[in-house]
C-alpha cells in the first residue's frame, strides 16, 4: 500500500458516499445515470468474486464489502425506492454497446484464460467506460447539479491517483499490470473535459453547464 493508492481509495469511497447521500437526503436521483450505477455494481461483483476465497488484508476485505453494499444500495434507491425521480428520458445510453465489446475483449486480451481472471479483466475494462452513460446524460441535459459534479470529480480523481500509484509501484517494486494501467488511463482521459469544466467553473461557484 502507498499513499497514492490510499488517497485514491478514499476518493473513490468519498464519491460513492457523496452520491448515496445526495440521493438519500434529497430523496431524488435527478441528473444521475442509473445505467452507470448498474455498470459500477457489475464492476464490483465481477471483480470481488474472490472476496471470501482470497484474503489480502482487513482493509482490502472491508473496502470490497463497502463498495459492493453501497453500489448495490445506490442501484436499489434509484430503481426502486426513488424510481419516480429517475430521469429515464435522459439516461438513454445503450449499455449493451459497452458490455458486449468489453466482454469480448476480456476473452481476447487477459493475463490468464481462467474464469476468475477473465471476470477480473472484464471488470477492469468495464470500469474504464462505466462513466460514459453518466457523462452522456450530462451532455444531454447540458448541466449537472453541483453535488453531482463533486461526485464526478472524486470518482475521476480516484483512478488518476491509481495511475500515480502504478508509476510509484513500478519504480519501487518493479510491479506493473498493463491491463489495469491502459484501462486506467482510458478511464481518466474520459474525465478530462469534465475536470477542465469542474476546475474552471464549479470551483468558482458557477453551475456546471456544458457548452450546448
Amino acid at each position: 500500500m502507498n499513499v497514492f493508492r490510499l488517497v485514491g481509495d478514499l476518493s473513490h469511497l468519498l464519491a460513492i458516499i457523496i452520491l448515496l447521500l445526495k440521493i438519500w437526503k434529497t430523496r431524488s436521483c435527478a441528473g444521475v445515470s442509473g445505467k452507470s450505477q448498474i455498470l459500477f455494481s457489475l464492476v464490483f461483483i465481477t471483480r470481488y468474486l474472490d472476496l471470501f476465497t482470497n484474503f489480502i488484508s482487513v482493509y482490502n476485505s472491508v473496502m470490497k464489502i463497502i463498495y459492493l453494499v453501497t453500489s448495490l444500495g445506490t442501484v436499489y434507491l434509484m430503481y426502486f425506492k426513488f424510481k419516480a425521480t429517475y430521469d429515464s428520458n435522459h439516461d438513454t445510453f445503450r449499455i449493451e454497446f459497452l458490455v458486449v465489446p468489453v466482454g469480448g475483449l476480456s476473452f481476447l486480451v487477459n493475463h490468464d484464460f481462467t474464469p476468475l481472471e477473465i471476470l477480473w479483466t472484464f471488470s477492469i475494462y468495464l470500469e474504464s467506460v462505466a462513466i460514459l452513460p453518466q457523462l452522456f446524460m450530462i451532455s444531454k441535459t447540458g448541466e449537472a447539479e453541483t453535488i453531482t459534479s463533486h461526485y464526478l470529480f472524486a470518482l475521476g480523481s480516484y483512478r488518476a491517483l491509481y495511475i500515480v500509484n502504478w508509476v510509484y509501484r513500478y519504480y519501487t517494486e518493479g510491479f506493473f499490470d498493463l491491463i489495469a494501467i491502459v484501462a486506467g488511463c482510458v478511464q481518466t482521459i474520459l474525465y478530462c473535459d469534465f475536470f477542465y469544466l469542474y476546475i474552471t467553473k464549479v470551483l468558482k461557484g458557477k453551475q456546471l453547464k456544458l457548452p450546448a
Binding site: D9, I56, S57, N60, K64, D112
Partner: peptide, 10 residues
C-alpha cells in the same frame, strides 16, 4: 512471476 500475482488492489 505471474503465479504469485495476488490482486492486492481494489
Amino acid at each position: 512471476d505471474l503465479e504469485e500475482d495476488t490482486k492486492d488492489e481494489l
